[in-house]
């Protein structure tokens, strides 16, 4: 049943990313409608990062993107029929890589929020 739950989480992460990417695109490309003309300037990025709503938005988005991306990548690798032991190694390696990515991303997001 674990593999079923992992796959369901993959779908859920995809659904979350759909909304988060829409919000992300709106923030960066439609922000001039809200009076922000340089959404990528240091001041704009820091102003956004210090809002609690954006903190939650980035943390969820980061976790969903890393999980969805690495699960999909793992599925592509599995289709190469690597053999059971190598498959386990790939899964473990991707779990470690994903955890590191999420931790580094979360640390950066939280530090920007606390500044």
């Amino acid at each position: 049943m674990n593999s079923v739950r992992c796959w369901f989480l993959f779908l859920l992460a995809g659904l979350i990313l759909f909304f988060i990417m829409a919000a992300h695109m709106a923030t960066f490309h439609l922000s001039h409608f809200f009076g922000i003309h340089e959404p990528l300037s240091y001041d704009s990025v820091m102003a956004r990062s210090q809002q609690a709503l954006f903190l939650i938005f980035y943390l969820i988005g980061l976790s969903a993107a890393v999980y969805h991306g690495l699960y999909g990548f793992r599925r592509i690798l599995m289709e190469l029929s690597l053999g059971r032991s190598l498959e386990k190694l790939v899964t473990a390696g991707l779990c470690v890589a994903g955890s590191v990515m999420v931790l580094v991303g979360m640390a950066a997001t939280v530090m920007a929020f606390l500044q």
Partner: peptide, 9 residues
């Protein structure tokens, strides 16, 4: 059906 190279592929 779910384990290994099963339904999720």
């Amino acid at each position: 059906a779910a384990e290994g190279h099963g339904i999720h592929h």
